[in-house]
Design a protein around this nucleic acid. Structure first.
Lengths: 243, 243
DNA sequence: CGTGCACTTGATCTAAGTCAACCCCAGTGG
DNA sequence: CCACTGGGGTTGACTTAGATCAAGTGCACG
């Protein structure tokens, strides 16, 4: 257990940064206690594989901090990212005993984990939990379908702009509105967008040269005019399309 | 009400063709009665719009027979299909009052509909129903993510082969294994696959000329060797990837 | 002070898109 | 009965966005 883990474990659920957005969001105090009893924290370093595709799945859980990626791959090595896990996102199916995707830590990432069989039992006896689980699954399904229009119909420029806008938006909810540290390498971005690393690089450069974004090193990004970025993304200013 | 509707309504749930695969699959007889009380049937003709994106959503429900499509579109007219609704598939979010996608009848299609507010209430008081709903949502999420690898990484040939294989597989469960009537026009196929109509046409022709499939007119398809088709799809013989 | 890794940039290639013609067949109406 | 029309589908010629291949750059780390 790292230092971070201990901190959170001591503080308990009430001080948890994802308390009101995660799977536990609509739990009563007593239900929270039950969840608390079967939870444990674990942290992975950036780049570490958390789960292999097809591997045994003893745990399910939520991202507390950091970022992880969900990927599927074909036999010949082609890879497609199918999900980006940010704080409060849930991973793992309670009713499946193997993982359907590979899960990799994109940054250092800490999970709040539940033993799968115990979680399954709690789920079937706690309607609040089941309801929240359903709601989150449906939200994820909508997000996945939004991503399908990006993969199927958007240009490389629009893809990159969409991803950057999404990251800025999610980062904004936890700090300064127009500045973020990219949790993904160019490689991971390419995998998410259905592009090559070179194309991602070129499009980021193009957006920078046009003054739509500014970069601080390879990872830091600032956007003075989000609506310009959203226009480049091919979305309405109001458009959803959350990662 | 059409003749088909009356037939099913008279027969009741026990004779329903999707009884054991739909949202009601794990309901007890008494629960089924409750569902039965709030259900109604309705049929749309091929090509009719069932729901517009953003429209008010008074109903949720299951496809009983036929096929409908779920699409999202961008302001400039680009369209991406994000789901194919076949018998037993569920549509609509109980907790949202507007439709997130456009729903169009691909063939004549009959739905078993529930008033949304009544369904929501039943859901919250019937754990079996909630559990089944969650399971189906998670399955759909997996399917959506499988579709993402197709959209992001597969070639036109692989995309077309994958779609044909999926249709043949789902049709097979209700009849002859290697023969099906395509429920989609070339246009709808293109929309689903993130391709143009011309590319779909060329790839279908190519698969036919190579003897991997045979066509009876534009819609009838026969496949003597499914594993050859799956190889063209870039999947393992055993691979899942269900539409 | 290399060595390696993440990223960028440039030159070239190609799969799929675009544009345009055409086929086939089912209705429709003269 | 047949000409006309229109929608779905096919095919061909050409274009192009993004992939591929191949050098670089610049920074972090032993």
């Amino acid at each position: 257990m790292t230092r971070i883990d201990l901190q959170i474990a001591k503080a308990g659920c009430s001080a948890c940064p994802i308390r009101h957005r995660a799977i536990c969001a609509s739990c009563e105090p007593t239900e929270l206690d039950q969840l608390s009893e079967i939870k444990s924290y674990r942290t992975w370093r950036a780049g570490e594989t958390i789960l292999m595709e097809g591997a045994n799945l003893p745990f399910v859980g939520s991202v507390v901090s950091g970022c992880a990626t969900l990927t599927r791959s074909m036999e010949d090595g082609r890879v497609q990212m199918v999900g980006l896990l940010l704080p409060s996102d849930f991973v793992g199916r309670h009713d499946r005993d193997t993982a359907a995707y590979e899960v990799v830590a994109a940054t250092d990432v800490t999970f709040c984990l539940f033993r799968r069989d115990e979680f399954r039992h709690l789920l079937s006896t706690t309607p609040h939990l089941m309801e929240r689980m359903l709601q989150m699954s449906l939200d994820e399904l909508d997000a996945a379908r939004d991503w399908m229009i990006l993969l199927g119909r958007k240009t490389a420029r629009e893809k990159v702009a969409t991803l950057l806008a999404n990251i800025l938006r999610r980062a904004a909810s936890a700090g300064h509105p127009l500045r973020a540290e990219l949790p993904l390498t160019r490689d991971a971005m390419a995998s998410y967008l259905g592009l090559t690393i070179e194309t991602v690089s070129r499009q980021v450069t193009a957006l920078r040269k046009e003054g739509i974004i500014e970069m601080q090193g390879h990872r830091g990004i600032t956007c003075a005019d989000l609506s310009a970025l959203l226009t480049a993304a091919g979305d309405d200013e109001d458009g959803a399309t959350v990662a």
